[in-house]
């Protein structure tokens, strides 16, 4: 239709394009973004990317140091370590991503309701949040996995629970701000039900700090997961995960097989660092006071 063409022509300058340009200018965080993309892609396509089957022993090369055949060496049974790290990355990203997403959704809903409604509901939610925050996050995660067992799902739940409070607080604070905006009143005047005011009009205006928080939380989730597994409270063999591989490698250190704990450990460090760098950069970019710089 003619009218449709008119509208397309007059399309506003994309907000996304400007954002992208500013992100690119920050070299370090842009590199972090690429590193994360590579890690995610490798995890996603693990069966095709990994040079070997991660569980297939190479009888000719047990405990082989890094070399041309096995780039990152092999373990006690001759399993290729690079392939194992790539496959283990799936577990890491899946659990960290699932925990973060779950905590984000739950925290956003609780925080939005508490902030919008206020009153006793707010009190109940915030006091529950406070009591979760009273525990050191890692100790709480340990306690939860110890109590409910350590399947993939349970570990994700344990990590997620420790993260929920930060989202609740963040979203509640943002809701207290946006619900006083005139457009919140306008939305009510037009005849929106409360649910729609919160979901359509208010929550989307709270998103930028949430993105930052979620990015930083991803790093934390990976670290927590690794630490839990290192202590044997997280993922257990035969499934593997970076922290648990590091733990295994550490017990081999007396044999001189340094590559067995160094490389999984490096995988953790690089991933966590990349998430933190990206989160910091996003925080700077999304801060309204930094606009136009």
């Amino acid at each position: 239709m003619e009218a449709a063409a008119d509208i397309a022509e007059a399309a506003p300058p994309a907000r996304g394009a400007r954002f992208w340009r500013r992100l690119r200018r920050n070299r370090l965080s842009f590199a972090a973004l690429w590193v994360l993309a590579a890690i995610a892609l490798a995890a996603l396509l693990a069966p095709w990317v990994a040079p070997f089957d991660p569980n297939l022993p190479d009888p000719e090369a047990p405990l082989a140091p890094p070399g041309w055949r096995h780039l990152l060496g092999t373990d006690l049974y001759g399993r290729d370590q690079l392939s194992r790290i790539i496959h283990a990355g799936r577990v890491n990203l899946l659990i960290a991503g699932g925990a973060t997403l779950g905590a984000l959704v739950l925290g956003a809903v609780l925080g939005a309701v508490a902030g919008y409604r206020g009153g006793w509901l707010d009190q109940v939610v915030m006091r529950a949040t406070d009591s979760i925050m009273a525990f050191p996050a890692f100790v709480l995660a340990m306690g939860i996995t110890a109590a409910i067992g350590n399947s993939l799902l349970n570990v994700a739940i344990a990590i997620g629970v420790t993260q929920v409070p930060s989202y609740v607080r963040l979203v509640r604070g943002e809701m207290l701000r946006v619900r006083e905006m005139e457009y919140a009143e306008a939305a009510r005047t037009v005849g929106n039900p409360d649910r729609r005011i919160v979901l359509v009009h208010l929550l989307p205006n709270c998103i930028p700090p949430l993105i930052v928080q979620a990015t930083l939380a991803m790093g934390y989730a990976i670290l927590t997961l690794a630490a839990l597994s290192y202590l044997g409270l997280g993922i257990r063999p035969p499934q593997s995960e970076w922290g648990q591989m590091t733990a295994e490698g550490a017990s081999e250190i007396v044999t001189g097989a340094w590559w067995l704990f160094l490389f999984p450990g490096l995988a953790i460090v690089v991933t966590v660092l990349a998430f933190n760098l990206l989160g910091d950069a996003l925080r700077d970019l999304l801060d309204p006071r930094m606009r136009g710089l």
Partner: peptide
């Protein structure tokens, strides 16, 4: 809520009253 179809308002601050 249903009455609001017949009863509307224009706010003072044209910027603050639009959802960005």
């Amino acid at each position: 809520r249903r009455r609001r179809e017949r009863l509307q308002m224009v706010f003072q601050d044209p910027t603050a009253s639009l959802n960005p």
